[in-house]
Simulated assay, not measured.
Amino acid sequence: MLAKILQAVTVKSFIPARKALSRKGDNGKILVLGGNYLYHGAPILSSLAALRTGADLVYTCVPKINVMATRSFSPNLIVVPLVDVKLTRGSVQKLLGIIPKELDSATMGMGLGIQDREALKILVSSLLDRAVMISLDASCLVPEIIPIIKDKKVTVTPHAGEFRRLFGELPPDSIKPRTALVEKHAKENGITILLKGPTDVISDGKQTYLNPKNLAAMTVGGTGDVLSGVVASMLCKNKDPVKAASAAAFVNGKAGYLAQKKYGLHIVATDLLDFIPSAMKPFDKVK
């Protein structure tokens, strides 16, 4: 199939206008699930990115050992304790009883420790039953999850190594075969894949978009966590995963470009948070 290079005019068509008379919650209610003893910052980055992209409410679920650090980082976060250090069946059941029933989207996996992969399957299945749009990243990208998400309009956001763990094939560096591989697995599994890299490849097996960034500074840790939050927010606006993921990749890359323009090769992931509003501004519409 013909892959299209993402342009601002295309991305603008992927982001619906915000309703002038909307109320709190109308522009997105999101669950972010991640973090462990070592990677406490990952879900914070995702949550703040989702808010900066325009979501109204973000419920940040982290292990209880990370709750105080997460709450103290920003008063904008609604922090939900995960009762166990890692994802277990017990913690999933308690989480499902706490979170709002009417979530729009969920992004999970960034820095998350998973003790029981059956727990992950139960959580994803339960959220899908509630019609929640789901994006999976990092530790949630395991082969066992594929039968659960097959043909379910789920988005996965791997880098090359996570892609190999999930699908058993390492994406080549050359863009043409790399794109073909993403299209193949997206079509076979009925999901949207956002393969991160110097050029992001986004495909649902029917449509494919390329997002050339080539930003050397964006190799810094945490930029993928920011992207996960942007994806979750876009999924609240556009229920078509390939369009939402493409818009998210473009906005995240634009924020990275603006950060690199200011700081050179010395950016950190929180710099992207600061530039998301500028990256989103050309797409702001109110009706």
Rank of each mutant, 00 (worst) to 15 (best):
I5Y: 13
I5E: 13
A8H: 07
T10Q: 10
I15F: 04
K19L: 12
S22T: 09
G25L: 11
D26N: 15
K29H: 06
V32M: 14
L33Y: 01
L38R: 04
H40M: 11
P43S: 09
S46H: 00
V58Q: 06
T60K: 10
C61T: 09
V62F: 10
P63F: 11
K64W: 15
M68P: 00
M68I: 12
T70R: 08
F73C: 09
L77S: 00
V79G: 03
V80R: 00
D84G: 11
D84E: 15
D84Q: 13
V85A: 14
G90S: 13
L96E: 08
I98K: 13
K101R: 14
D104F: 11
M110H: 01
L112T: 05
D116E: 14
S125L: 05
S126G: 09
R130M: 09
V132I: 07
M133H: 13
M133V: 09
D137A: 03
S139H: 08
S139W: 06
V142I: 08
K152Q: 15
K153T: 09
V156Q: 07
T157A: 15
H159F: 12
G161C: 01
G168I: 02
P171A: 03
P171L: 03
D173K: 12
I175N: 04
E183M: 03
G190F: 06
T192N: 07
V201Y: 05
V201D: 02
S203I: 05
G205N: 06
Y209A: 06
N211E: 13
P212G: 00
P212C: 02
P212L: 02
A216K: 07
M218I: 12
T219F: 00
G221S: 11
G221A: 09
V231A: 12
V231N: 06
V231F: 10
K237F: 09
P241F: 08
N252L: 05
N252G: 10
N252Y: 04
Y257I: 02
K261M: 00
L265H: 00
H266W: 10
T270W: 14
D271E: 08
D274H: 15
P277E: 02
P277A: 01
K287H: 13
